[in-house]
Computed example of a mutant assay.
Amino acid sequence: MCEHIDMRMSFKSSQLEDGDIICYQKSLTSANRSQFRYPDVPSFLEYVRNRQVVHFRSLEKPKEEDFSLELSKLFTYDDVVERVARQLGVDDSSKIRLTSHNCYSQQPKPQPIKYRGVDHLFLKPKLFQLQVAIHTIRLPKNSTVADVINDLKTKVELSRPDAEVRLLEVFYHKIYKIFPPGEKIENINDQYWTLRAEEVISSFQIPEEEKSLGLHDRMIHVYHFTRDSNQNQMVILV
Results as ranks from 00 to 15, higher is better:
residue 70 E to A: 06
residue 141 K to N: 03
residue 138 R to L: 04
residue 152 L to Y: 04
residue 28 L to P: 00
residue 8 R to C: 07
residue 125 P to Q: 15
residue 203 S to E: 12
residue 7 M to C: 09
residue 228 D to H: 15
residue 154 T to A: 15
residue 69 L to F: 03
residue 230 N to D: 14
residue 135 H to Q: 12
residue 30 S to K: 15
residue 198 E to Y: 01
residue 110 P to G: 04
residue 78 D to I: 07
residue 6 D to V: 08
residue 43 S to N: 04
residue 209 E to Q: 12
residue 211 K to M: 08
residue 134 I to F: 09
residue 81 V to Y: 01
residue 186 E to Q: 15
residue 152 L to R: 01
residue 201 I to L: 09
residue 185 I to E: 00
residue 197 A to G: 05
residue 150 N to V: 03
residue 230 N to P: 02
residue 107 Q to P: 02
residue 12 K to G: 05
residue 45 L to M: 12
residue 15 Q to Y: 13
residue 85 A to R: 04
residue 63 K to E: 12
residue 152 L to I: 11
residue 38 Y to D: 05
residue 219 M to F: 00
residue 51 R to K: 15
residue 120 H to I: 10
residue 184 K to A: 04
residue 90 V to Y: 10
residue 75 F to V: 03
residue 28 L to S: 07
residue 118 V to P: 01
residue 126 K to G: 01
residue 223 Y to K: 14
residue 234 M to Y: 01
residue 228 D to I: 05
residue 26 K to R: 13
residue 35 Q to I: 00
residue 181 P to H: 12
residue 33 R to A: 09
residue 10 S to Q: 10
residue 166 R to L: 09
residue 232 N to T: 04
residue 86 R to M: 07
residue 143 S to T: 02
residue 138 R to A: 08
residue 26 K to T: 05
residue 212 S to H: 10
residue 77 Y to V: 03
residue 58 S to D: 10
residue 93 S to G: 00
residue 151 D to T: 14
residue 50 N to M: 10
residue 116 R to A: 08
residue 89 G to V: 04
residue 109 K to T: 00
residue 148 V to R: 00
residue 177 K to Q: 06
residue 145 V to A: 03
residue 56 F to Y: 14
residue 171 F to M: 09
residue 237 L to Y: 13
residue 209 E to L: 09
residue 157 E to M: 12
residue 205 Q to V: 05
residue 154 T to S: 15
residue 14 S to W: 06
residue 41 V to G: 02
residue 188 I to K: 05
residue 172 Y to F: 08
residue 177 K to E: 01
residue 114 K to T: 11
residue 134 I to Y: 10
residue 92 D to S: 09
residue 42 P to A: 05
residue 177 K to D: 01
residue 129 Q to M: 11
residue 111 Q to P: 01
residue 156 V to Y: 05
residue 35 Q to Y: 13
residue 132 V to N: 09
residue 67 F to T: 10
residue 36 F to Q: 06
residue 92 D to G: 07
residue 237 L to D: 07
residue 220 I to K: 14
residue 184 K to E: 07
residue 1 M to I: 11
residue 65 E to S: 11
residue 19 G to V: 06
residue 178 I to T: 13
residue 70 E to H: 03
residue 223 Y to C: 09
residue 114 K to D: 08
residue 122 F to N: 15
residue 189 N to A: 02
residue 114 K to M: 13
residue 149 I to L: 15
residue 144 T to G: 00
residue 66 D to H: 14
residue 219 M to E: 08
residue 226 T to M: 12
residue 122 F to G: 01
residue 104 Y to S: 12
residue 2 C to T: 14
residue 16 L to M: 12
residue 234 M to D: 00
residue 12 K to V: 05
residue 20 D to E: 06
residue 123 L to E: 03
residue 202 S to K: 08
residue 128 F to V: 06
residue 56 F to L: 09
residue 121 L to N: 07
residue 177 K to W: 04
residue 180 P to N: 09
residue 20 D to A: 06
residue 209 E to P: 00
residue 233 Q to D: 03
residue 132 V to Y: 06
residue 90 V to C: 12
residue 78 D to E: 13
residue 30 S to R: 15
residue 25 Q to S: 13
residue 183 E to M: 14
residue 161 P to D: 09
residue 174 K to M: 04
residue 136 T to W: 08
residue 190 D to E: 09
residue 181 P to T: 06
